[in-house]
């Protein structure tokens, strides 16, 4: 899959990398067992620090999205992937709360917020079915 890094964006580079790899898996661009470039290779190809890639890979590994083997290198975790664990649900609630709070504060309807999430799910499902 293509990875695009925006050096001027507010999102830190490691986070851009992490989110794109997760989206790649969600869209089916990266399949379980697919190889990913080594830390050194990916850092070199993007022209970013080794630590940045290391950090992104570390977080992805902790989240169960990828596996890092000493010999075989880096690969996408085999299906069904990490699933929605209890720890993840706790984190998700924590992260969603301020977003929902701000939407409420701005007078948004519950349905509007739901439809945004629906649209994301729909676009992802369309991709994986193709």
């Amino acid at each position: 899959m293509l990875i695009k890094i925006d050096f001027k964006a507010d999102t830190p580079l490691y986070e851009q990398l992490r989110l794109q790899i997760i989206e790649g898996i969600a869209r089916g661009l990266l399949k379980g067992g697919d190889d990913l470039p080594s830390v050194r290779q990916l850092a070199g190809d993007l022209g970013i620090n080794l630590h940045t890639v290391n950090k992104a890979y570390g977080l992805l590994k902790a989240g169960g999205f990828i596996q890092v083997h000493r010999q075989k290198g880096v690969m996408v975790s085999p299906a069904p992937g990490p699933g929605s664990t209890k720890a993840y649900l706790t984190l998700l609630k924590k992260q969603l709360r301020p977003l929902a709070v701000e939407a409420y504060c701005r007078g948004m309807q519950k349905q509007e917020l739901h439809s945004i999430i629906d649209a994301v799910f729909k676009s992802l499902q369309k991709n994986t079915e193709e």
Partner: peptide, 12 residues
Amino acid sequence: TELAVTETAFRK
């Protein structure tokens, strides 16, 4: 938007 782009499967 200025981007650095790479393809993870390029060398495959």
